[in-house]
Design a binder for these strands. Structure first.
Lengths: 156, 156
DNA sequence: TTAAATACTTAGTAAATCAGTCAGGAATAG
DNA sequence: CTATTCCTGACTGATTTACTAAGTATTTAA
């Protein structure tokens, strides 16, 4: 479990997609412009998100990315785990090769802590932050500002 | 809110101190040896922990570091905030300089999320992970293994 | 069928951060 | 005085970040 701006970028981008799920696939170019993230960097992140089964790419004009699962089944922990390499729990991750050492004691305490943290973030799914009052109006207003989805029909 | 190995080092070291609070000040040399962290790196981390009022340094022979507050009043969030620079919330941290922009929408969602996370980690204090059955026996056993505190009387 | 739009991939890079070394100064117990 | 410890600052190689560049593959629309 590691939390950096990289993870923030990924979560933010995923939220953007989830917000526009109904309109259709979301292009990285749009996310890049609206969220202020470099396009190529997004491509790298989405390569990982795709390999981890969180998003689904649609090629060709009118394409983009959509969620591979319902927003209610994608947790923040999923996204961060996909994008940020987990940090090494100092070699002795329960393998017992430092039995009884003082290392393993406090390392275990840290391990317990990160387990709690991971459980917490696993309980937070994308939809929890999207299904809020007034969000939809805001999204619509702001899409107009950026001129998103002006020539696209609403998808099923 | 940012979480890296740096934060892990700090939390682990703080746990080590909390575990030996009753014996007296804990030297960085001991922590370095037992937790496998470089001494000079620890010194840098503790410089920040001290400036943030989490630990108190005691100079001279028999010195070391002790907690500046009861373990029940030091949260994991405190430690991580002290050691890891908070990551920039992309310039528009509520300053209103990107009013109504699509940026601020998803940024706000991210902001809400990190607030929840911070609240979660603020609720986890050092003592919660220390006051557990069998921990004290383990600590004693492992201190003997590393030869810690062999010539030191128990502090008040 | 062609052109454009998009996902996808690989390679490279400047800057930042990490984790550490080194060298020394300041306080204090014995 | 001397050994021990905190404390500070400067420096460094390795890694990671965040990004650029340049392409390939696939699909839609004209």
């Amino acid at each position: 479990m590691k939390l950096s701006t990289k993870g923030r970028y990924a979560v933010t981008a995923m939220m953007d997609i989830a917000l526009h799920e109904k309109v259709g696939p979301v292009t990285l170019a749009d996310i890049s412009q609206c969220q202020g993230i470099s396009l190529s960097y997004l491509e790298q992140l989405f390569s990982k998100l795709r390999r981890n089964g969180l998003v689904q790419g649609v090629r060709g004009p009118g394409g983009g990315y959509r969620l591979a699962k319902p927003a209610s089944e994608i947790s923040v922990a999923d996204i961060i785990d996909a994008v940020d390499e987990k940090m090494d729990l100092t070699k002795c991750g329960g393998k017992g090769n430092c039995d009884g050492g003082s290392k393993c004691l406090t390392h275990k305490l840290w391990y317990d802590l990160t387990c709690d943290l991971h459980r917490f973030l696993s309980g937070i799914t994308l939809d929890q932050y999207l299904n809020r009052p007034h969000i939809n109006e805001l999204v619509k207003k702001q899409d107009e500002q950026y001129g998103r989805f002006i020539n696209r029909r609403t998808a099923a």
